[in-house]
Simulated scan of single mutants.
Amino acid sequence: MALSRFSLAWIMVANLASVAWAGNTFIERDGVVSIEAEHYTDRTGRWHPVREHDAVPGGPQSSVKAMKIKSGAFTDNLRYAIHFSQTGNYRVWLRGRSQGKVDELRVLFRPENRGQSDSSVFNISLPLTLGWANQLQSIRVEQPGWYRLLLVKGKRSKWHWDVRDSERSVDKIVLLREPSITPSGDGPEETINAGSQPVPESTAPLQSIETNEVWELRDGYVVIEPEPIVTEGWCYRDQPSGFTGAGYRIWDPCDDREDDVSSRGKGEPGVEPEPPDTWLTIRLRLKKAGRYRVDLRNYHSATQPEIECRIGRLDEDGLPEPPFYRSGDSLNDGPGFSWLDWGAPAFDLKAGVNTLYLVGASPSFAVDRIAIYRDGDAAAKAKALNPETRDSLPTETE
């Protein structure tokens, strides 16, 4: 019996291999451990990559990759596996920034083969602008071997005016054997373990499912059913009826708080999306660069007077490119399934592979179909927005 297009898509997802993310490990070299925060061994919770701007007085402004957390629990952590050859006391230096005067990060450090109760625990306050924290905190390495260092969100500044959680970003972690000097600039060269030390199984990151489907734009448009896309932030639903494919995706957020930029006007750009575990990610292949518009066939009930989501683009490093855009529906077409009422954004896409992402903003924002069409091309738009148009299956799985 021939398989339907939807059955084929689900089989593709079910057969994806479960692969471990190749987390980095680090070594102490001549009394120095230097770690770029985004090169973590493992990540749990709402930490996510960003670009931080490093302004040099009187000079040009550059950007660095960093890891950021805003709202989140104590269990949300960045974990780094480190091998030490030299024992002794090591001074802990963090390069980053915070939103409040005394917003803190909590540091936990222990031997890899010991329990959490054996951890050294302390807090470090980050500066308001990107730079090195100037607090004096040290850790003790009693024996050579593997250790783990965790970063979690510490207490929030009582001086910060906003009642919502303030943000903390970490660019670099440096451990210097005492007596040590104060790091300057962006600190010493990173000391990644390039195979010189065998890694114990206990440092391995958790298993995760990854997918590399690519959709190709043809005749100026592409139509995508989101059900087969692997994501942790969007749940599958098949009720009520009226959807175009095998069902639809509904955003299931960790919380419904919005950040400062999310209150901007309809369709206006913002800067900071939600963390990656809430993204619905789409990879597109173009033969020729052009400007393309994104529209969503969404579901809304009569009890939801207005719903919205965010649409943005990722750069080659998987980091969000500002801006992202507010897009939504105001029930102009009544309850049920319909295309966006406002904020269908246009992106200048390059030839080759481009990556877009969707993240919900209103609780229970639902996506039935994603239409992407060449801006200003009436025929491509009509074809893409016609619910009778067949959806496009991924043209390549790398």
Rank of each mutant, 00 (worst) to 15 (best):
residue 207 Q to N: 09
residue 208 S to N: 08
residue 209 I to H: 12
residue 210 E to Q: 09
residue 211 T to F: 14
residue 212 N to M: 05
residue 215 W to S: 06
residue 216 E to N: 13
residue 218 R to E: 12
residue 219 D to C: 01
residue 220 G to M: 09
residue 225 E to F: 03
residue 225 E to S: 11
residue 225 E to N: 13
residue 226 P to I: 07
residue 226 P to F: 02
residue 232 E to T: 10
residue 233 G to L: 09
residue 238 D to Q: 14
residue 239 Q to V: 02
residue 239 Q to T: 11
residue 240 P to S: 03
residue 245 G to C: 09
residue 245 G to R: 00
residue 248 Y to V: 08
residue 250 I to L: 00
residue 251 W to T: 01
residue 251 W to K: 02
residue 253 P to Q: 13
residue 255 D to S: 06
residue 258 E to G: 03
residue 259 D to K: 12
residue 260 D to P: 12
residue 269 P to L: 14
residue 270 G to C: 13
residue 272 E to H: 01
residue 275 P to D: 10
residue 275 P to C: 09
residue 277 D to E: 03
residue 277 D to V: 07
residue 277 D to W: 01
residue 279 W to P: 05
residue 280 L to M: 12
residue 281 T to V: 13
residue 286 L to F: 14
residue 288 K to G: 12
residue 288 K to E: 15
residue 293 R to D: 08
residue 295 D to S: 12
residue 296 L to W: 09
residue 296 L to C: 04
residue 305 P to A: 13
residue 309 C to D: 06
residue 312 G to T: 08
residue 315 D to V: 07
residue 315 D to C: 04
residue 316 E to L: 14
residue 317 D to G: 09
residue 317 D to T: 03
residue 319 L to F: 00
residue 321 E to D: 11
residue 321 E to M: 13
residue 322 P to F: 00
residue 323 P to C: 13
residue 324 F to E: 12
residue 325 Y to A: 03
residue 329 D to V: 13
residue 333 D to W: 06
residue 334 G to Y: 08
residue 336 G to H: 04
residue 339 W to V: 01
residue 341 D to M: 03
residue 341 D to S: 14
residue 342 W to F: 15
residue 348 D to Q: 15
